[in-house]
Write a protein that binds this DNA or RNA. Structure first.
Lengths: 210, 210
DNA sequence: CACACAAGAGTTGTTGAACAATCTGGGGTT
DNA sequence: AACCCCAGATTGTTCAACAACTCTTGTGTG
């Protein structure tokens, strides 16, 4: 068993609070007023801030404080540009003989179950997991880490969306179709589908901003 | 003018010390014994460590200390896999009408001058700058940031090389050729050349490990 | 009324010290 | 040689204090 350590625990709590929407983008995180609820000292809290800043979930304005990151349309467009590059490359170069679709399939199934239950936040989580699994096909730990960072940041754009169902539902079926195409051995066609998928996803996300 | 702040200054000093080879990979950085030379307190030093760990230049072994990262052959192979993906994509999709080769050209010139002077460390710096400029063609701030991180880590593999000339000299001419091909408007051929370039570079780096 | 400016409060940046938790190395025992 | 235990050293964490900076407020001046 791992022993998280106070700093790592604070990081986890803050990250979950942001993903669950309890901390809206743009809100200021005061150091002194957070030491109490998190039960850590100011120094440890600053260390937790540092890692979250490196992950892009927080931004620091010197001598002014740290704020929950809020993505501009330009930043979202940048994220999708990178996603197209990473995911399509990984999928089109993935082995097809045999295909390694186990991770994709479980993510798709999770998304389907969550959609049936109407839990759109869980659908979003499963969808992000699906895309992380696509990048995992490249077999690069570094790309995996970067992709996790991308999905974490992108979720900040989800929590403020007024219509989460519109944001996540259309993509469950697309995930299934892409996975099936890849399982059938046609990685390049799956990658083409994925590219279209990402472009429409970008439009949907940009259309759901405040 | 910017006012770096103590933590940022310590980060800069440590990073330069690593790039210049004064801190060999694998050496242990004791907290107490570094507060003196850097003139910062232990807490500030730990914050500096945190950022360098996030950048991949240091690694922390819990309750044992922080060490200068040393790249395993597998990690170097991973870096080159990612470089091929990023750089070749950026170059093949770069605009050719007109080509935006100004940044590339200045980096090539810098490398040439440093090679004439026999300053191989400066040649390596200019070469890394060349590749950062290639990724910059994609126009993505995020990719720029990731690429800077890659080059910084890769330099850790350079400082221990027994023959720095063999590590950097062959690539000055190749940079020139790739830039000329791109300037002539053939981005795809330039990308193909770059791919071969990177594969041979990987072999050279792996052959120059301790 | 509009505006510049100074004082004040509040927050962040940094330091130093203290204590707990953990690793390291050596000595003794079997 | 293998094992156990202990002292020393180092890291992990917290606390308290002060300096540096920002923002707000209030005041005086034109």
């Amino acid at each position: 068993m791992e022993k998280p350590g106070s700093a790592a625990r604070a990081v986890e709590q803050l990250r979950n609070a942001m993903i669950n929407g309890e901390l809206a983008p743009g809100t200021r995180l005061s150091e002194t007023s957070l030491t109490g609820p998190l039960g850590v000292s100011r120094n440890t809290l600053r260390e937790a801030f540092s890692t979250l800043i490196e992950e892009g979930l927080l931004v620091r304005q010197p001598h002014r404080g740290v704020f929950v990151a809020s993505l501009s349309p330009a930043q979202i467009a940048d994220i999708y540009r990178v996603r197209v590059l990473l995911e399509c490359s990984a999928l089109s170069q993935a082995p097809t003989d045999p295909p390694r679709a186990a991770g994709l399939r479980t993510a798709v199934d999770d998304a389907g179950r969550a959609a049936d239950a109407g839990d759109w936040r869980a659908v979003g989580t499963a969808n992000m997991h699906f895309h992380e699994q696509i990048v995992a096909l490249a077999g690069s730990p570094r790309l995996d880490s970067w992709m996790r960072q991308l999905t974490a940041e992108l979720r900040l754009a989800f929590v403020t969306a007024p219509d989460p169902e519109a944001l996540h539902r259309p993509f469950v079926a697309m995930n299934d179709a892409i996975t099936s195409t890849y399982e059938a051995g046609d990685a390049h066609r799956a990658a083409d589908m994925l590219r279209d998928y990402l472009l429409t996803s970008e439009r949907v996300v940009l259309g759901n901003l405040p």
